[in-house]
């Protein structure tokens, strides 16, 4: 983010195109407060687009623009209300009288470890992040999470030594850091959850044997001939092949469908 250019004011509503905000004809503008300063922005925009509309440029604090990278956490309050709200700037639509603050980074402690060495016991996680036990169950983390993750739930699961549960509960976490920004126990919840998912994947979750088998088949050259056959085809034959291909019906119960052509199985 860098500073706003001050040419955007209430009076000059600009219609932007391309990767800039598009203002539909007749759209109303509403006041929002960015870092305490008032801007008029079109009411249909996301917080991120509205900030760009107001002249801010995101150098950091924006990534995917699709609600999945966790780069754009935003804290906001509505004028006159004590309540804090949390959201992703790229996903949350502006409302009138929002007071906005971006939290692109939060200084949360991250432990160093070698996943191959720490083993699969919960004690390893407890040793790397002893602050886990500072949790007072205030639940401010869960209330802040823009992904509706049960943060207190996964923190509790880890205190209970249940890595699987923590990995599953934290699955939707996008590492935005809003939970840590609210934590009374100064706990870096999302880093701990990431460690839990890594430990779960490395030590607890069953290996995908079918995948190993398939990789083995590929390496042994089982599919080489088929690939060569395809590569050698003319464009027309390839198209014909594609159009006539057999396809598993969308709703076929798993394991029930078999192609008529079994040569490639």
């Amino acid at each position: 983010m860098c500073d706003a250019d001050n040419t955007t004011t209430k009076k000059t509503i600009r219609v932007a195109t391309g990767d800039r905000a598009i203002l539909p004809e007749g759209a109303k503008t509403i006041p929002v407060y960015i870092m305490g300063k008032k801007y008029e922005v079109p009411e249909t925009l996301t917080i991120m687009k509205a900030m760009e509309y107001a002249g801010f440029k995101f150098l950091r604090g924006a990534g995917c623009r699709g609600g999945i990278c966790g780069a754009c956490p935003t804290v906001y309050r509505m004028a006159g209300d004590y309540k804090l709200h949390f959201g992703l700037a790229c996903q949350t639509v502006v409302e009138a009288d929002m007071y906005l603050a971006q939290i692109p980074f939060f200084p949360a402690n991250r432990a160093e470890y070698n996943i191959e060495e720490i083993g699969g016991a919960a004690e390893a996680i407890h040793a790397l992040y002893p602050e886990l036990f500072r949790c007072v169950a205030c639940n401010l983390c869960t209330k802040a999470c823009p992904m509706d993750v049960d943060v207190l739930g996964y923190i509790s699961a880890l205190k209970q030594g249940n890595i699987k549960k923590a990995a599953e509960l934290s699955f939707d976490c996008i590492q935005c850091g809003l939970c840590a920004s609210r934590c009374m126990g100064e706990i870096p919840q999302y880093h701990i959850a990431q460690l839990a998912r890594r430990v779960y994947g490395r030590y607890i979750q069953p290996r995908a044997e079918h995948l190993q088998k398939r990789v083995g088949e590929i390496e042994s050259g089982k599919y080489d001939a088929m690939l060569q056959e395809l590569s050698a085809m003319s464009k027309e034959d390839l198209e014909k092949c594609y159009v006539e291909r057999e396809r598993e019906p969308d709703l076929a119960p798993p394991g029930t469908w078999q192609p008529k052509e079994t040569r490639y199985l």
């Binding site: 007072v136 169950a137 049960d150 509790s156 205190k159």
Partner: peptide, 12 residues
């Protein structure tokens, strides 16, 4: 029959 309560946290 024992029914563990859902979503419990540390008692402190």
């Amino acid at each position: 029959e024992v029914e563990e309560i859902d979503r419990w946290n540390c008692c402190g």
